[in-house]
Amino acid sequence: MMVLSFAAIRSEARDWVVYEGKESPGQGRHIVFITGDEEYRSEEGMPMLAKILAVRHGFKCTVLFPINPADGTIDPNNQTNIVGMEALKTADMAVMQLRFRELPDDQMKYFVDFLNSGKPILAIRTSTHSFAYSRNRRSPYVKFDWQSTDWPGGFGQQVLGDTWVSHHGNHGKESTRGVINEQFKAHPILRGIEDIWGPTDVYGIAHLPQDAQVLVYGQVLEGMKPTDKPVAGPKNNPMMPIIWVRNHTWESGKTSRIVCSTIGAAVDLECEGLRRLFVNAVYWGLGMEDKIPAKNNVTCVGEFHPAFFGFGKFKRGLKPSDFELK
């Protein structure tokens, strides 16, 4: 796999950041990352994943952030403002990590128009409960709410495969080992995947449709180290799905490839196997599975020391320009 020099990448310092990939295999493809969650540091993890896809694989990557309009800083607690959603007009794929957002209708329309285009989505961790409408119940997008009854379970359940259910593992005390489903071990997304572990816990899953193909199950471990033993008893019998794929057909009649992963906090991305799985998922989503090598290059670009997950633990004062390639 060809590695691009930093000189081949251009960042733009606005309320978002752009990494311009110049060479194949991703040349000419645009991926938009939409971040915005209070707990799992998507504002740190998604820029690193975008840098890998741009520098190592040639994709143009745009990363959007929840922005405090008063000072232009990244504010994961701001649930109502993600600047730059119009980037989705030229996106070939979206990678999203959202939690309980209620975007203004003009921002949300770009997202819904993208969905109706039938383009692929990689949705990570809290994206199963991306939207929560409490301020404007008259919004035309209120059905996207994770608790919707008109569209049961909202965007998460109807499109990704499930909404928020529960912490199946003991949050902050029982980490997750990824166990590949033998039935789909030859799936292109799993190519070159040897190990998956993350300190986040396994989510409960209750509504996964029959058309979903579960690629990875989550084994609950006794502690917060990758060497910890699996928890004995019913928590792991059966194990919960943590990564699956499915198709969703929109009102437009177009169909999107969907990849959903309930593991994927920034600290989870310190795991090489999980980074590789997400990079492979982008290739697969874009119909480029024939270009996935035996072991995709997912070496981090620069240093990567993300903050641990937790409410109120985000790094204050950061701006999108802080995530430019140096």
Rank of each mutant, 00 (worst) to 15 (best):
R101Y: 05
H129W: 06
R101N: 06
G72W: 08
P120R: 01
D71M: 06
D75I: 08
Q97C: 13
Q97L: 14
Y110T: 07
R125H: 15
P104I: 03
D145N: 13
D71E: 05
D71C: 05
K119W: 03
L115C: 11
I121R: 00
V112A: 02
R135S: 11
F131P: 07
E102H: 03
N68P: 00
T128M: 09
V95A: 05
I121N: 03
T128G: 02
K89A: 15
T73S: 14
D75S: 12
A94T: 12
M108H: 05
T128V: 15
K109A: 15
N78L: 14
S117Y: 01
E102G: 02
N116E: 15
V142C: 09
L98R: 06
F144T: 05
Q107L: 03
K109N: 12
M93T: 08
P69C: 08
G118Y: 08
A87I: 02
T149E: 14
Y110G: 01
I124A: 03
R135D: 09
K89E: 15
D105S: 05
N78K: 14
V142F: 10
D105H: 00
T90A: 13
M108T: 13
L122N: 05
F114P: 03
A70G: 09
M96L: 15
M93V: 11
I82Q: 01
Q107F: 05
A94I: 14
Q147T: 15
R137G: 04
M93G: 06
G72H: 09
R135E: 10
V83A: 07
D105Q: 07
Q147M: 14
L122D: 03
D71R: 05
N77M: 13
I124Y: 00
A87G: 00
I74P: 03
T80E: 12
M85H: 01
T73M: 10
E86G: 09
G84P: 02
R125P: 00
F131N: 06
R125S: 11
T128E: 04
N78V: 15
M96P: 02
P120S: 04
S139R: 08
T149L: 12
A94K: 07
T80V: 06
P76E: 06
D75C: 10
N116C: 08
P140K: 07
S117N: 08
M93Y: 07
I67Y: 04
D106T: 10
T149Q: 13
F100D: 15
G84N: 01
F114E: 01
M108S: 04
L122R: 05
K143G: 07
W146K: 14
A70C: 07
F144Q: 03
F131L: 11
H129V: 06
N68W: 00
D145S: 12
A132D: 14
Y133C: 07
S148D: 06
E102C: 03
S127V: 01
Y133E: 09
P104H: 02
S127R: 00
S148G: 04
R125Y: 10
V142R: 15
A94N: 06
A94R: 08
A91V: 10
Y141R: 09
P69A: 06
S148A: 09
Y110N: 10
D71P: 09
M108N: 06
K109D: 14
D145A: 08
W146I: 11
R135L: 12
M85S: 04
I74S: 02
M96K: 12
Q97K: 12
R125E: 10
R135P: 00
S117V: 04
Q97R: 11
D150H: 12
T128D: 06
D106E: 10
